[in-house]
Design a protein around this nucleic acid. Structure first.
Lengths: 117, 117
DNA sequence: TAAGGTACTTACCAAAAAGTATGGAAGAAA
DNA sequence: TTTCTTCCATACTTTTTGGTAAGTACCTTA
């Protein structure tokens, strides 16, 4: 368990790889959005507003757009009036689960009294 | 593979958990520092400066201090003149590997032509 | 006495991210 | 014609983060 993946990384290239992921995930509201969409759920813009009351419309759409651009979220437009737009995860977005799980497990290690020094 | 860990998470609590991890990892230089310290290496302040030429002293010490405060990095002071201070990872810091690995794997999925839609 | 190496501080400025407030399009229903 | 719903867009302000430059403390060696 001394290695990272199968590829050979330098400290810099590995850091770059992880940073790409962080850039996708970081942003005040992205994780909450993602966790609301996991499990194949499709939510409308207004559903997300209700689910995350603290977010402003500007922030919500901004984070959704970035997630979409990064290929994590997909946008389904129904041409109706009033408008109906649904948001869901792409397959790649769904496949984030193991990584997030690993982070939660790491965070959990802390409380479990494992010596940190 | 539909669940997150063994615990029951709400979208909000899971997002909070992951965000705690992101807050530790995010910061312009933290990942590079971490990847330089992986494998039990002990590096002096000046070693890190040389290893990461683009970082300023202010930034380097700032990121190190934050990592230390978060329990990821440990600081070993040798009382000498000129000063000698070494930095290394804590056990918990080392145990970050699987999580970072999962992120690299996720990033790699993208190129592998797996349909994103 | 002066110069130098190591590990920092501090003051100051710029850029990026987040938040607030308001406005608008597109029709359908009253 | 006015109103209503939904999904945004835009201008502006505040907060956070990152960066630059300079200085400091300590003791050693020449």
């Amino acid at each position: 368990m001394e290695e990272m993946s199968e590829k050979s990384w330098t400290p810099t290239s590995a850091a770059d790889g992880v940073e790409q992921v962080l850039r996708i995930l970081e942003g005040r509201w992205k994780l909450v959005i993602l966790f609301h969409l996991f499990g194949g759920k499709l939510l409308r813009f207004s559903d997300l507003e209700r689910a995350i009351p603290a977010v402003s419309q500007k922030m919500l759409i901004q984070q959704l757009r970035q997630l979409e651009k990064d290929g994590v979220v997909r946008r389904i437009v129904h041409h109706q009036v009033p408008p109906k737009v649904e948001y869901g995860l792409t397959d790649w977005g769904q496949s984030l689960c193991p990584a997030l799980d690993a982070m939660l497990k790491w965070a959990a290690l802390r409380e479990n009294g494992d010596e940190v020094n």
